[in-house]
Amino acid sequence: MTFKFEIEGGNFSKAGNASSAVKKILKQINVPPAIIKRLVVALYEGEVNVVAHARKGWIKVVIEPEEIFVNIEDEGPGIPNIELAMQEGYSTASQKVREMGFGAGMGLPNMKKNADLLNITSQVGKGTNVEIIIFLNQSHK
């Protein structure tokens, strides 16, 4: 089953809404709390990155018996050097974003820590595409 959400760039007061909606669904379908937590944390980081760094984005969550697949796609500046962006503490967050309490450069590393599989592709000037997979049956890991 597939669920879709939109993310508005720059609107920090709404950041987290999509993560909360996905969380409710996962609770309703009896996904173990520890897995929900990992998925939601990864998703939230992705959601905030769109709000902080891009103009507009879309979340797609596909729930299957074996795994949950999340795709976060945005229209924005893109990431020139993904390897660098993945490093702890690396951030290009603006002053405004830092004032909101974000910009520690910990989002992508945190996402990697919580996802079973993470794949980021990006086109500079166009946008970024983040794919997260979390296995429901943890023996797959």
Binding site: K27, Q28, I29, N30
Partner: peptide, 20 residues
Amino acid sequence: KPRSMLILDEDMGEALRKIQ
């Protein structure tokens, strides 16, 4: 112990059907 009251069905497939 957790005792979530949000669960629509113990079985995930069935719960997904119920969400739909």
